[in-house]
Design a protein around this nucleic acid. Sequence first.
RNA 1: GCACCCAUAGCUCAAUGGAUAGAGCGUUGGCCUCCGGAGCCAAAGGCUACAGGUUCGACUCCUGUUGGGUGCACCA
Length: 558
Amino acid sequence: MASLYTPLHVAAARAVGGDPKVEAPPRPELGDFAVGCFALAKARGTNPAQLAKELAAAFQPDEWLASATAAGPFVNFRANRAHAFGWIVQAALRGELLPRTLGAGQTICIDYGSPNISKHLAYHHIRGTTIGHSLAQSFRALGYRVVAINFLGDWGTTHGMVLAAYEKWGAPGLTIDTLNDLYVRFRAEVPDAEDQGRAYLKRLEAGDPQATAMWQRFRDVSWAEFEDVYRILGIHYDDLNGEAFFWRDADRIVDKLRADKMLVESEGAQVVELPGEKTPILLLTKDGTTLYATRDVAAAEFRERTYHPTRSLYVVDRGQSLHFRQLFKLLVKMGYDWARVCEHVPYGLVRVGGKKTGTRLGNVVLMREVFAIAEDEVRAKIAEVNPTLPADVVATVARQVGIGAVVFANLAPQRDKDIDFDLDKAVSLDGDSGPYLQYSHARCASIIRKANEPEAGDIDFALLAHDAEWAVARKLLEFPDAVVRATAACEPHTICHYLLELSADFSRWYTLGNSDASLRVLVDDAPVRRARLALVRAVQAVLREGLSLLGIAAPDQM
RNA sequence: GCACCCAUAGCUCAAUGGAUAGAGCGUUGGCCUCCGGAGCCAAAGGCUACAGGUUCGACUCCUGUUGGGUGCACCA
């Protein structure tokens, strides 16, 4: 089950036999594909270095691979470049580098974003939102059916508190700012805020029409603002059933647990003891109001019943690990064997000043503020380096590139890493950044614009003789592996780093033309120009799709 | 107290158990009468927190220690 998504990888594996891993050698001068002979030698009871030597000696060149050499326990293969170029460019242009049917017939539920209503979208929300969106895009690209779920936090004691605060003080117009302020003030000034919140929740769960109408308005106001942000980020949700959609299931769930003798009363609340857990999981308060665990059970049942997913992902910060571990154990205890498809996909905190942020902690940085600053940075940069860009293009590009910078900065580190919020870094346009990828793409587009010639039918790829050109093509071959690994491990950052490498290889090749005009793409020699242009088109296609998998736009100029 | 996560260049981060641990930022020095310099090249910078273990091979897996972060019943 090695990662063999191209005919060249398959050829290398076949030359060795068995089911080997085909990887890139650490240095290109060693070859294009490497296969370690450790496992095979062990199976045959021979020495890996000796086996590698024999395999290299027995190697017969084919249309894909030109030669094989043994290097210690590795066999290194060199591609038949001219033939490989043709396949790579064609596959890239047709969008066939990725295994498009890998996920055929499989459904992936992804719960991500899922903010609380009546509260700001803070900067730290961007982490889970962008990770989830990138995973959704990547699974879709591989042919999985994806259900993007926004499990809106629109029920519970918190919202009882906002309603109670509104009743107490009112608000100067209903916006998410005024609602957020109500919540913060209520917690700060009312000693028994939580009790009052629960009392109001009880009214909601009893069907109080006034309370329900008010709650609905708060939800609508909140969603309108969230939707604006999702539009900017290019996110579309398939399922918007928030917590409020599920609280009515609590009675049925509790009754079932009681009938199955799992429910225990502890300190007046309804709980379930879980194997291996010191603290039980709470289902109902002593007032009888529902708790999030109960609503999560209902939501999990709904997702299984409605979508029957092969994987059901919860992209939620690491702070909720314990909750999800308990939730999944509860599902198992309830006899749901489908609970094994549920996975918590945790990510590290976005810290400010080394500390966790939160509405209650009062140290939130707003997402829209960071976006605005990023856009300003881009506008300033454009004024400096590309002053002739038309004003309407500037407006669009400033947003695309500004957002690209912020999104990339959040996707590039591994999920588990905590991130310290650093404004300069989040909006950086230089170095390993979203704008660098976008810039590489825009350069490709610029060359193609300037060439102004149709994609030629007959291309002699043997004319691409420079190592820098081959390095680019070789890197294109790694695109499928980067995307498959991203989905398998739920780690979008593998795509980020792949695209940085591709852009770097492209830029290196491109820059050769600065000192040696014969190495430029747009040379007078028509056959050479056509071949190089085809390679540029292939790079552009992969950059564009790769960026889309990250949820980042790919403007043609910037 | 218990649990989970993290520790790699001055800083921010990479590295499917494999070959000489790589980028960016910052520092120093180069490269466009330009196919877009938001770029490229080069130099300098490492006992991969520490100590053991597993194996042909460990930044990667296991155990312990230290340091930091986050959770641990009526918030979500």
